[in-house]
Every structure is written in structure tokens, then in C-alpha cells.
Design a protein around this nucleic acid. Structure first.
Length: 632
RNA sequence: GCCGGGAUGGCUCAGUGGUAGAGCAGCUGAUUCGUAAUCAGCAGGUCGGCGGUUCGAAUCCGCCUCUCGGCUCCA
């Protein structure tokens, strides 16, 4: 028979040959690396017999599919190990995830780190024995009987949702319900590491029982595990919480969980970003406002926030009237709009506010600057005519992309979120709004992912998600269309014919939360901020105390040029002071000694690069000012 | 909020029932040095908080706070 390969060639094989035979006939290497196959687009086991004219692709660990099935098989190995060591543990589900796998168990006592080690050891035993992994097809009754006998209630629940015959995969007498395919034997896994234990609700539902989840990772080569663990270490070094402490940018305190304290250097960074954003907004035709943090609860009832989000809001009483701490800026912005009469000639009205909002996040979800209880949004509200919607949204999308580029973020994804279950306004309004957003994205030729039901309660939205170094994505920019707030707050304008009409409102943020954005930025650049954002841009380092006077004059000149500079006049060796500036990730150092003093120059050292030679002080300052203006 | 780990000087961490430790940072002195750590000395902690067990608790137990990893949530 003839088999078609992905490169377009064909391979002749004897009748009855399996996918494994095909891999072997191509190369011994492939025979070794093959994990499964794709036959006519369908993933199958290597033992699958082939038929004449089949299109076949061998799946190895190198592909996404290969990794997924490899990790899924690894989760089976781990589950077997767990059940051998803890026979009372019942198995739930154990899928592959983006990197690695997990398996959920229902067990009386949660696993300890010691247990994890024991389980890992058992995994290696299973791996060493190279047990073949076989697919077995059972009738539903057989499958249910098997699991009933073992009291595996979660499996029975899963089987009850499946149709037709049930396939199970068996290794060394242990089996699990699974569609497959799986690796041919447990020996394909050469390295496995169990990473952590965590509680997880059955089927992800808070109302269900909490199970014990073990996360793990595995590879077909030991060296790949070492490399993975090295990367994890690298990522830990980039953790913005660690960097925030090391660079003395911000801190958190018991006295206010989730409320960041900004230190002088952090504030410098914060304000540099804020100043830049403010200038860009003004240049883009926005006007800035500031609205109060505490407002009458009545306002929040009117806006609909109280109904939906009161559990996440803070309240306080003022003169016997309940007030809420603002969780969003829009109601304040609406009051400003309504403080005067508007004409259609004014549109679009673009009002921005760097608004400090407070949200009561649940205790367990706080996470450095990524998830805090108070933060500043680079918020804005655009009031416009219905026919200006698409143009305005397009403008905002371009604005967001421009700003991200300046901060060095090229990796982000865009999502369109539509009407959620809890919503305000009419379905007709929602349809209109969703169509407007779709149309803009199409016009701008933007790839996006659709998130049905994920919109804000007052309107659909387009979100920008930035990817950080741990490959987590964080929602930053957002553009939300809103026909509801204008209705609720009875916004009006006078149309050309003198009639009163209702404007459309667009809510939008570019960076989203300043705090979260700074966290992402820190991880992105591993703490080595570009010159224009660095809290300290230059350190002046005299070679010894003998040059203290010259160093001081250099320091003063640089400082009066408006460059953020520090003088390290400690009686230490140059090497010590250089190291000290390097670990603080200061982008430029100027080293001054006898030569420099005599020639009025400075020796310039660049962070991470080293000595770059001497130049006149004026040239150095000019370079810094140019780089800063270029946002380098 | 739920499950599990953790909390010891400014930072990183050692210390399993018997008088609180190290390195770094800080301070003092010496050194005056050419591109990632000079030497010596000093000072600094109610061992997260409260309660309990014990002759005796950083250590064992309970509750609380914060924190870490997840789950759920994230307008």
C-alpha cells in the first residue's frame, strides 16, 4: 500500500503495516522519537494499522500536539503512582496544560511536599519499567462496572457524559478513561518533575468539592528538564515583586493588604510614565478632569455598579449618608458631562482622567502590582455621535498600539468580548454596539479572538492583552462601547435641528492600571528599565576620594541639565562602586579619575555592556538628553 | 472566599524543646584604589500577633494577620 507523507512524497509499505512501521521505514531516529500519528488529520496511536492512500504525519515531542499528548500520558503515569502509594485516592481528571500537566485527586489528607517526592520516585519506577500503553475499547457497561468496583465516582460521572464505546488506556494494569492517543510506553518519558500541589474545585466550580491537584512537567530528555528548570529560575529573577524590593520602587504592608506604597524611585518611574501619557493624551485632543474618590451611594445605584459589584466596593458613611469609594471613574465623568449643555458641534468630546479606583479583591487573589486593591487607570470617556463611533474606536486602537510600541511591547493579543449574562440595556443596543466593534476590527485588518459573554455589563469591548515573560497574558488596554450609561444618566446634546438627542459613550484605557502596567514592564525588561524610564539615569563614580571635587562638579552639571543622577562618593574601590551601580541596573555610569579631570571628560560605562571609553562631559549630557527624547 | 506551604535584624537565609546565628546592607576606623565585592571593628531581632501545652517555646498546639503556589473571581 501507499502512504502519503506531509512533504508530498509517498511511501510504500506492506499491507497491515502500522504507524510505527512507517516511522521505522523513514528513519531510525524518527522511530525512536515517534509518539503518535495523525492519520488523515486524526490523531491516533502508533499501533494503529494504516490503509492504502492514507495521509500520515508522525507526531513527535517537537510539535504542540506531541507535547500535549506526552504530558497527558505523563499525567497518567503520575496518577498510577499516586494510586499505588495512596490506594484511597480517587482520580478525577488529568489533562495536559500549556506547559506540563496536572491531575486532580480526591483524597482525605492533602499531599505534602514529602509525598510529592515519593510520588515522583514512583513515577520513575513506572518509567524505568517501560510498561506498554495499550488502548482498550470497552462498552459503557463494562467501563462503568470497572470503575464502580473501584468506587471511582468522578470517572463514572465522566463516562456518563460520553457516547458510544469507551476507550481506556492501560499500563501495568492501571487504566484511565481517555480518548487518546498516548505515547507507546511509559519509557518514552525520561525526566519528570512534580512541581506543586494546590486545591482545585471539581470541574472548576466553587460549589463543588475541593480536590488536590498535583502539577508536573516531563520531557523525553533529561537535558530538556534541566533547561526548563533553568528558565523557571530566570523567570523568578524577573518577578516584579522581587525587583520592586531590590530596586526600592514600592512595598506592601500588613497595614493595608493589596494597597501598594510607592517609594521615591518607584514614584519617579510612575510619574515619568504618567507625564508621558498625559502629554500624549493632550496631543491626541483629550482634555483632563479629576473626579472625587468618594461619592454618594445613590450615584452607584443609578449607574448599576451597586447592583452588580457592591461586594467588590468599599462603603463609608458621611453625615448619615452612605457613600462608596469609586471602583470606576465613569459616573464621575458623566456628572461632569451633565454639568453643562452640549451641542452636536462639540463632538467628539474626549475627556481623560488618571483616576484612582479602589476595588475589594478577594484576599486570595492579590498578587504584587498585578492584582491590587487600589490603582490608577489611564481612563477616558469619549462622547460622540453614533456615526462617529467607528472612527473614534479606530483612533483609540491606533493610540493603544502606538503607546505599547514606545514601551517595547510588540507581543499582545486582541479580544472582542460580547454581551454577558448579566447586562443592562436592550439586546438591540448590544447588537448594534457589537457590530460596530466587529466592523472596526475588520476595517483595520486586525486579528482577534472572540470571547462570547465576556463583555462589561454596560457594553461590548475590545481588550488588549500584553504577554509577560512568564507567558501569562494581562489585560491592559480596553475599548468599551456603552449605550447604557448615557441612557441612565440622561445625557443629551442639541442636534442640528434643535432636537435633544442622546450621545454615545466610549470608555477606554490604554495601559489599564498604571500599577499593573509597571509590574508587567518590570518583568518585561527584567528590571533594566530603558534610560527614559530609569529612576536613576546616571551614577557618577570617582576613582578615589582624590577626585571627589571633580566628581562633584560633574554631578552638579549633570543634575542641572535635568538628568536624574547620583554621586557615589563612598571611600570604596571603583570596582565596588561599579558593581553597586550595576546591580541597581543604572543605565549609565560615568567614571572620573585623573585623566578625566585633566581633560574635562568622563569615562562612560553602559549597564550590562561595560566601559565604552571617554568623551567630553557636554557630549555625554547631550547623548543622554537625545536618548531620553527618543524614549531609549 | 477555598486548599496547601511559609513568616527569624533593612535584604537573603540557617537554627526540631534548654542563653537567638551567618552573609549582604548600615555605622566607625584604616585603605585612596581605573571598570562587577579592600580589611578590621561596631551596632542591629519581644523569632508576624494573641492564647495554650511545658520547669522551660523561634521550635509543639489553637485562633488571627500577612505572604507564596493554585482554585474560584477579575466591571
Amino acid at each position: 500500500m501507499n502512504i502519503r507523507l506531509p512533504d508530498g512524497s509517498t511511501k510504500e509499505l506492506a499491507d497491515g503495516a502500522t504507524a510505527r512501521d512507517l516511522a521505522g521505514s523513514i528513519s531510525p531516529r524518527l522511530a525512536k522519537d515517534a509518539l503518535a500519528v495523525e492519520i488523515n488529520g486524526e490523531a491516533k496511536d502508533l499501533s494503529e494499522p494504516l490503509h492504502d492512500n492514507d495521509s500520515v504525519a508522525i507526531i513527535t515531542f517537537d510539535s504542540r500536539k506531541g507535547k500535549a499528548l506526552f504530558w497527558h500520558s505523563s499525567s497518567h503515569i503520575m496518577a498510577q503512582a499516586v494510586q499505588e502509594l495512596f490506594p484511597a485516592a480517587r482520580v478525577a481528571i488529568g489533562p495536559a496544560i500549556e506547559t506540563g500537566f496536572y491531575y486532580d485527586f480526591d483524597i482525605e489528607n492533602p499531599f505534602s511536599p514529602d509525598d510529592l517526592q515519593k510520588i515522583e520516585k514512583k513515577c520513575y519506577e513506572i518509567i524505568r519499567n517501560k510498561y506498554p500503553i495499550e488502548r482498550i475499547s470497552l462498552s459503557r457497561d463494562e467501563a462503568i462496572a470497572y470503575y464502580r468496583q473501584r468506587n471511582e465516582t468522578y470517572k463514572i460521572e465522566l463516562i456518563n457524559e460520553l457516547e458510544g464505546r469507551i476507550s481506556v488506556y492501560r499500563q501495568d494494569g492501571w487504566q484511565d478513561v481517555c480518548r487518546g492517543p498516548h505515547i507507546p510506553n511509559t519509557g518514552c518519558v525520561k525526566a519528570i518533575k512534580l512541581l506543586s500541589v494546590a486545591g482545585a474545585y471539581w470541574r472548576g466550580d466553587e460549589k463543588n468539592k475541593m480536590l488536590q491537584r498535583i502539577y508536573g512537567i516531563s520531557f523525553p530528555k533529561k537535558s530538556m528538564l534541566d533547561e526548563y528548570l533553568r528558565l523557571v529560575e530566570e523567570a523568578k529573577k524577573r518577578d516584579h515583586r522581587k525587583l520592586g524590593k531590590e530596586l526600592d520602587l514600592f512595598s506592601f504592608h500588613t497595614e493595608g493588604a493589596g494597597f501598594p506604597f510607592w517609594h521615591p524611585k518607584g514614584m519617579m518611574l510612575y510619574n515619568t510614565i504618567l507625564d508621558y501619557c498625559r502629554a500624549e493624551h493632550i496631543a491626541a485632543g483629550y482634555e483632563e478632569i479629576k473626579t472625587p474618590i468618594l461619592l454618594d451611594e445613590e450615584l452607584w445605584r443609578k449607574s448599576g455598579h451597586w447592583d452588580k459589584y457592591r461586594d467588590n466596593m468599599y462603603f463609608t458613611e458621611i453625615d448619615e449618608v452612605m457613600h462608596a469609594v469609586k471602583p470606576m471613574n465613569c459616573p464621575g465623568g458623566l456628572l461632569v458631562y451633565n454639568s453643562s449643555a452640549h451641542s452636536y458641534r462639540e463632538f467628539p468630546i474626549k475627556i481623560c482622567e488618571f483616576g484612582l479606583v479602589h476595588r475589594h479583591e478577594k484576599a486570595g487573589v492579590l498578587h504584587g502590582l498585578f492584582r491590587v486593591r487600589n490603582f490608577t487607570q489611564d481612563d477616558a470617556h469619549i462622547f460622540c455621535l453614533p456615526e462617529q463611533i467607528e472612527e473614534q474606536i479606530g483612533e483609540v486602537i491606533s493610540f493603544i498600539m502606538k503607546i505599547y510600541r514606545v514601551f517595547g511591547f510588540d507581543d499582545y493579543k486582541i479580544e472582542l468580548s460580547t454581551r454577558p449574562e448579566q447586562y443592562i440595556g436592550s439586546i438591540a443596543m448590544w447588537d448594534k454596539a457589537e457590530n460596530a466593534l466587529r466592523s472596526v476590527l475588520k476595517q483595520m485588518d486586525i486579528n482577534y479572538q472572540l470571547n462570547p459573554g465576556d463583555g462589561a455589563f454596560y457594553g461590548p469591548k475590545i481588550d488588549f492583552h500584553i504577554k509577560d515573560c512568564l507567558k501569562r497574558t494581562w489585560q491592559c488596554g480596553t475599548v468599551q462601547l456603552d449605550f447604557s450609561m448615557p441612557e441612565r444618566f440622561e445625557l443629551e446634546y442639541t442636534a442640528a435641528d434643535g432636537s435633544k438627542q442622546r450621545p454615545v459613550m466610549i470608555h477606554r484605557a490604554l495601559l489599564g492600571s498604571m500599577e499593573r502596567f509597571i509590574g508587567i514592564l518590570l518583568e518585561h525588561c527584567a528590571g533594566s528599565l530603558p534610560l527614559w524610564l530609569s529612576p536613576v539615569q546616571t551614577a557618577v563614580v570617582p576613582v578615589s576620594d582624590r577626585f571627589a571635587e571633580y566628581a562633584d562638579s560633574v554631578y552638579r552639571k549633570i543634575q542641572s541639565a535635568g538628568i536624574r543622577v547620583e554621586l557615589d562618593d563612598r571611600s570604596e574601590k571603583v570596582g565596588y562602586k561599579i558593581r553597586s551601580a550595576e546591580v541597581r541596573k543604572i543605565p549609565f555610569m560615568v567614571i572620573v579619575g585623573e585623566k578625566e579631570e585633566q581633560s574635562g571628560t568622563v569615562a562612560v560605562r553602559i549597564h550590562g555592556e561595560g566601559d565604552t571609553g571617554s568623551m567630553p562631559l557636554d557630549d555625554f549630557m547631550k547623548k543622554i538628553k537625545t536618548d531620553e527624547a527618543d524614549k531609549k
